[in-house]
Structures are given as structure tokens and as C-alpha cells.
């Protein structure tokens, strides 16, 4: 199967355009099988207060993650202030030995919508400290421009609220971001439910997709991971190939010249 072009994410060149989460799987083995099937080179994970002892499987999750040999993208999930998010990012850097951080600063507990003001504040602090910030943001153009101005090379606007599987609820806004920020690496993060949602984003010119729930909550996560991998590749190939312009009036694809006489009076 032909692969879409490689792409640059901060200092890394990647082939896969799918970032995949490690949460919500029914077992560690199901998680491992799904991640491998996805072909993803970047996985998201998090950190919490937890005491690793023999009785609670200790370091098992970390051992599994290490065996995947993927780039790690720790998140600041659950933070509702810039201060909390910055603190979590610093701990994540120490724990995972990476400058990459998926910066989440939530503003509302119902739809888990990012707080744009706190997000900017935290981004400014973290970039000054040398972090490579992957902000989870809304699709607001001005917010995204300001994040770019602060030094983000990657932006991750939502397609829909986390875990809803609603797909791209505002394709116009996402398309506008792509047009107005042509040099920015853009991933749709959150809300993707079906492979066709991912294709839609990729055909808009998005560079990649970050998802978790859509794979983890599928009846067959490993199979769904494969479906997403192929869909994202197909969407990117379509974007690179150039989609035909839409038109209102029908246009025959079969030549009409030299039709037999009984067809010419239609």
C-alpha cells in the first residue's frame, strides 16, 4: 500500500500520521495489540499519584510502553488552571524524559472545553522553559494565531469534545485554520468517532490525527486501529493528490461526441 509523505513534528520526522492514546482499553494486551495495529509512532500517556508496589503490578504499564519504542507525548489532562498544567508538565518532563507535552488546560467540566486564556498563559511559560508544546485547543482562529505567535509549531484543535465521537462539528473553522496557518503543523485532537471523520480532516489538509476513545471503545480495537491507520493514510494521499472542485451542474464523464443517432435527440 502506498504511504503518504513523511512529516515533521518539531525535531522528529514521522511516517505515521496517527497519534494514539493509551487509555480506556479493556486490558493491557488489548492496548498493546491496538497500538501495534495502528502503526502509530507517537503515543499519549499521563501521570498520577500512584505508589508502584509488587501488589499493584508496579511498573508493568511503563514496561509495556517502553517495549513499543514510540515517541511519548505526555498530557496534562485534568488540569483546570495554568499553574496546575505547568506543574504537571514539569513533572512529566522529569518522569518521561521528554520536552514534548500535550498541553490541556480545561475550562468547563461538561464539555471539557479548553480554557483559551489559561492555555495561552501556560504555553508562554512552558515555551520559555524549553518545552515543545502541543496545545489541545478549540478551533478559534485568533487563539490559534496567538499560540503560533508564542512559538508553538504544532496545534491540536478539537474536532468535537473529548470522547463524544461526534466527528468534525465545525469543518468551516477547521478549514479556515488550515488556510490561515499554512505553515503550521495541525492535528485534529478529540471528537473523532469514525475513520471517515479522520479522512475528512486529512482531506482538509490536516497533518495528522490524535485519537483514543474511537479505537479503545470499538468492539475490536485492533481492527479499528487498522481502519484508522488506512483511513488517515488515504485522506492524506487524497489531499496530496488534489481533490477535484465541487460543481453544481452535472457533467457527463463519458464523451458525447459521435453518439449514435438514436441518442442525439435527448
Amino acid at each position: 500500500m502506498q504511504q503518504a509523505s513523511t512529516w515533521q513534528v518539531y525535531d522528529q520526522t514521522l511516517q505515521s500520521r496517527l497519534f494514539i492514546g493509551t487509555a480506556l482499553y479493556s486490558s493491557p494486551q488489548v492496548m498493546m495489540d491496538a497500538i501495534k495495529a495502528s502503526g502509530s509512532q507517537v503515543i499519549t500517556l499521563s501521570l498520577r499519584r500512584q505508589t508502584p508496589t509488587k501488589s499493584n503490578s508496579g511498573d508493568q504499564f511503563w514496561q509495556l510502553i517502553q517495549s513499543l519504542n514510540c515517541h511519548l507525548l505526555p498530557n496534562t489532562a485534568g488540569c483546570y488552571s495554568a499553574k496546575e498544567a505547568v506543574k504537571t508538565a514539569r513533572l512529566a518532563r522529569e518522569l518521561f524524559q521528554t520536552d514534548w507535552v500535550k498541553l490541556e488546560v480545561l475550562g468547563d467540566s461538561y464539555n471539557l472545553q479548553p480554557d483559551p486564556f489559561a492555555l495561552l498563559e501556560a504555553t508562554k511559560t512552558l515555551i520559555a522553559e524549553g518545552f515543545k508544546v502541543f496545545p489541545y485547543c478549540t478551533d478559534d482562529l485568533v487563539l490559534c494565531q496567538k499560540l503560533a505567535d508564542l512559538g508553538c509549531e504544532v496545534l491540536m484543535p478539537w474536532g468535537a469534545p473529548i470522547g463524544t465521537g461526534k466527528g468534525l462539528i465545525n469543518p468551516y473553522a477547521l478549514e479556515t485554520l488550515r488556510e490561515r496557518l499554512p505553515e503550521m503543523t495541525l492535528l485534529v485532537d478529540a471528537g473523532i468517532g469514525k475513520p471517515s471523520d479522520a479522512v475528512q480532516a486529512m482531506e482538509l489538509g490536516y497533518d495528522g490525527i490524535l485519537l483514543n476513545t474511537a479505537v479503545a471503545e470499538a468492539l475490536e480495537p485492533s481492527l479499528m486501529a487498522t481502519a484508522f491507520s488506512q483511513a488517515i493514510n488515504a485522506g492524506r494521499l487524497a489531499y496530496e493528490a488534489g481533490v477535484m472542485p465541487e460543481r453544481q451542474q452535472a457533467k457527463p464523464s463519458t464523451p458525447t461526441l459521435d453518439q449514435p443517432i438514436w441518442q442525439q435527440n435527448v
Binding site: 487509555a23 499521563s46 498520577r48 498530557n75
Partner: peptide, 10 residues
């Protein structure tokens, strides 16, 4: 005292 460990995340 807090011990921060890796956990799953999306």
C-alpha cells in the same frame, strides 16, 4: 510526599 507514576492517557 507524592510519588508520580506513568498512567494511561489520551
Amino acid at each position: 510526599v507524592e510519588i508520580m507514576s506513568p498512567i494511561t492517557g489520551g
